[in-house]
Amino acid sequence: MNLPHPDDLTSLVLRTDFSDDSAWAALQAAIDDGDESRHATYVSDPAFAGATVQSLVDADGSAVEKDKLYYLFVADETTMTDPEHPLLAVDLADEPGRAFRVPPGWYADVSTNLTIANMDFVEFADAADASGTYRGFHDDDASAPVG
């Protein structure tokens, strides 16, 4: 299995659950909502149906150096069934397989900073809450996306 590459200055959003086309469309709309900048390269290829984090890590690990990815976002069963549609962000470089959830409202923040290498995956992963979900860098009383 070869992982697709995102377009320039975007992050890869790879669909692995094909149970609900309307949830996939809602996820894309939520990510793209109100932002003129393109942050995602969406891949909805049934060849990735049911792919696990480990199989994605293994696929990236077997790629030649120039084809390796640093991270990706997975639209898995949880993404499709949870009303918040949180993507699974997966590290493929520094700590392959380390992951955290990202609700669409926070996707642009994470994607942009990772794409331009302004921040490292670990910084976002370490900021995830007790449920393993990133909801921004904030004080205890903040809860909404900044910007």
Rank of each mutant, 00 (worst) to 15 (best):
P103Y: 07
A125S: 12
P83W: 03
L92P: 04
G50K: 14
D7N: 10
V43K: 00
L27D: 01
D141Y: 14
D129I: 00
A93P: 00
G97V: 10
D20P: 13
R15T: 09
F73R: 02
D45V: 06
D20S: 15
A89E: 10
E84H: 00
G34C: 04
F18P: 01
A29I: 03
E84F: 00
V13Q: 01
I116K: 07
I116G: 10
A127D: 03
D8T: 00
L9G: 01
G105M: 15
V13K: 01
F124K: 02
D94L: 12
F18V: 01
D58F: 04
T10A: 03
D60S: 11
Y70T: 13
A30V: 05
P6M: 03
D67I: 01
F124D: 07
T115R: 11
D141I: 06
A29D: 11
H39K: 02
V90H: 07
A142F: 14
D129G: 05
A26W: 03
P96Y: 09
N2S: 10
L92T: 02
M80A: 15
T81V: 02
A89T: 11
Y71N: 06
G132K: 14
D45T: 05
Q28W: 06
A49Q: 11
T133L: 04
H5A: 15
P4A: 06
L69Q: 15
